[in-house]
Design a protein around this nucleic acid. Structure first.
Lengths: 200, 200
DNA sequence: TCTATAATCTTGACAGTGTCAAGATTCAAA
DNA sequence: TTTGAATCTTGACACTGTCAAGATTATAGA
């Protein structure tokens, strides 16, 4: 891990992604600039263009990395409770919520901005599909256990993801009425959400 | 409606909001600049500062106006089907989806960016609370009709909003797998989502 | 009506931004 | 060892949000 000051950085691409993640956490979405990222990586302001076509491409890479970590978190929770589908569902969702709370700005970036150019970033698409597959597996286990309604697991997975994602989004954007948050803690709120789609 | 070219604009504040909405629709979120808005309103680049503290304040105003229109749309649908709670729920949700599809960028702005400074824009808060109350009323009608689970209507309203909002967000961000979209149309997808929380 | 104060708008400037072109430096293959 | 490709720097450009100073107009008090 010795950083010699050579002309060629050696692993600039990853260093830029890492610097971007850090700046995102410290200065938020609006504070994320290519120049700051370059500076933090110890490189001149237009060095990033050797590795990323434009700012969007860097953001896509940061998002892709975010999906990779999100997958890890959900997968860990899912594996821990793989013998109890119902609990598994709640814990996986809870991992999702916690990821969003821990890394709010990155979470926001992952679900915004890039989007329409989606197709231009195949890695991003692949990684988010991988997440969907994971959700689908958890949902299928719950369908088999009679916890969730049977039927198309694709659509059921979409529902489950949607209800959790919607909850998180409203939470992050401050759209959940304050009196609700004061009265009920997050974990309970999440469980209440999931109860709505759960066959008791 | 005759626009004399006086030094004082007369109604610049509203003109700026309107120009902002138009630019948002044409150039997207990243194309929305204060200077472009000012130019479109036929005024110098720093005239907006007489009416808005900064860019965030303009965005807050645009969002507030957006919530006002969203309310109108949902309310119209709700009134039309007020004798059939179940149908009312679907149509209100459908109005929500359509608003997001018709005015994607504004919808995104409404649910992003501003947020943490929420408290600094009381009109914005008031308008979004008004929307929540509307959702709550619809949900209560559905609870009374046995369409939705009984229990805290606040939390039930949050669930309903969350599931629809999550669906829309995933849709807008291109996070819904393509094969699903190709196979099932939007209206059906939405109804499937709502079926998940509906007592058949 | 006249006047002073406030509101509104313009002009000019500043630092920061994304991006590109030209050139310097280094790596890697022939 | 040479040469072309990859990487990085330097310098420039137009555009951005924001502020300060001044011009213009509205408004309220005498």
């Amino acid at each position: 891990m010795s950083k010699k000051k050579t002309y060629h950085h050696g692993d600039l691409k990853n260093a830029l992604i890492k610097a971007g993640v850090e700046i995102l956490a410290k200065d938020g979405v609006s504070g994320l600039s290519l120049r700051k990222v370059a500076l933090k990586a110890g490189v001149s302001h237009s060095a990033p263009y050797a590795h990323f076509e434009d700012k969007q491409a860097l953001i896509a890479a940061i998002s892709t990395e975010g999906f990779r970590q999100l997958y890890e978190r959900i997968d860990m929770a899912a594996k821990k409770y793989k013998t109890e589908p119902s609990r598994q569902l709640v814990e996986a969702a809870w991992a999702y919520v916690q990821f969003a709370m821990d890394d709010t700005d990155r979470f926001k970036v992952m679900f915004s901005a890039v989007l329409e150019k989606e197709k231009e970033y195949p890695q991003f698409v692949a990684e988010s599909q991988r997440n969907f597959q994971l959700v689908k597996m958890i949902v299928e286990a719950n369908q088999a256990a009679g916890v969730l309604r049977s039927g198309s697991s694709d659509l059921a997975a979409l529902s489950a993801w949607g209800i959790v994602h919607g909850f998180v989004m409203l939470l992050l954007e401050g759209q959940i009425p304050h009196f609700i948050l004061e009265r009920t803690n997050l974990r309970e709120l999440l469980e209440f959400q999931l109860d709505q789609i759960t066959l008791k």
